[in-house]
Design a protein around this nucleic acid. Sequence first.
DNA 1: GGAAAACATTTTAGGCTTAAAATAATTTGG
DNA 2: CCAAATTATTTTAAGCCTAAAATGTTTTCC
Lengths: 172, 172
Amino acid sequence: MPAVSDCKDMLDSETKAVETPEDHAEELRLWLRLLTCTTLIEGEVRGRLRQRFDVTLPRFDLMAQLDKAPDGMTLSDVSKRMMVSNGNVTGLVERLVESGHLDRRTSETDRRVQVIRLTKLGRAEFRRMASEHETWIADLFADLTPKDVRELMRLLAKTKASAQKSAARRKP
Amino acid sequence: MPAVSDCKDMLDSETKAVETPEDHAEELRLWLRLLTCTTLIEGEVRGRLRQRFDVTLPRFDLMAQLDKAPDGMTLSDVSKRMMVSNGNVTGLVERLVESGHLDRRTSETDRRVQVIRLTKLGRAEFRRMASEHETWIADLFADLTPKDVRELMRLLAKTKASAQKSAARRKP
DNA sequence: GGAAAACATTTTAGGCTTAAAATAATTTGG
DNA sequence: CCAAATTATTTTAAGCCTAAAATGTTTTCC
């Protein structure tokens, strides 16, 4: 049963709008559940990548970005796509170049820019891992019906848009 | 329109069940979208906590767990709840004890066990941060209707159960 | 043209995170 | 009882990650 004041705003004795301390417990629970799901799946994927291929999740993610860009990407692009800091990408790339998975060169038209690509080895290894990775994801989501998946996609798109709007409000 | 083979298994010319390389692109896209949402919101919350209260997200999360347990928790409990490694909790606790937010003592009935609690200061600071934190979350999810929230809660519960089942299959 | 602003990247300092090994305490099964 | 197994925690080594400052390059705009 609803509590006494179930409305968004109240009118006080002088008929002036008053901010009610609103209850956002549901949104909070939703956020925690979202975080739990992601942490759970991420941990599982991380563990399988390590055990099966001895590779870390961030390296896999970086290679996944590059696999979609045959002509390479700049570090900034990668950083935006992966939603991590520039400095973070610098370090990841360094290690993947060292291990022979990535190729890095300075752009000829703008000497500030570094362009990175998968090497032949990098692409081959990534493809091998990615196909197994896909089956893990399928297994992790196995109990969802196609309708569940569609519905989640829709609601998460809405969530993403809402969060982006909120983030933009903070730093315009 | 569906491709030629839209079924889960095929019967080959000798009427034997054959594994078709299935297409799990939808689940993959769902996973990436889930990850994007979480990363986006997490980054926003992390930034606000830092700017507004000069506190890190993991410290806030740890305090949140303890706020719900007035009698304290063991490190193992905390580690399970937060879904992070034991060693990670050891370090976090160390820093929060140092700063005066946490109280740590060895259990009297089992000398292996460490019990931690919020100090008066820790609880006061957490409550102050938590109430503002709740408004950030509400704002981040502001465009979702109550129905969207309910539906997401339901689908994420299903997702969590599915992932847990899959994780259990791997390491029984 | 050249100073100032903008941009891409790297460096730095500090904190977070994990997996695995080590340590210490308790429980279990002969 | 006590050796072996289990449990809770800490330590270790390596990598990830961020924000902020520093560096080098290009663009803007007077």
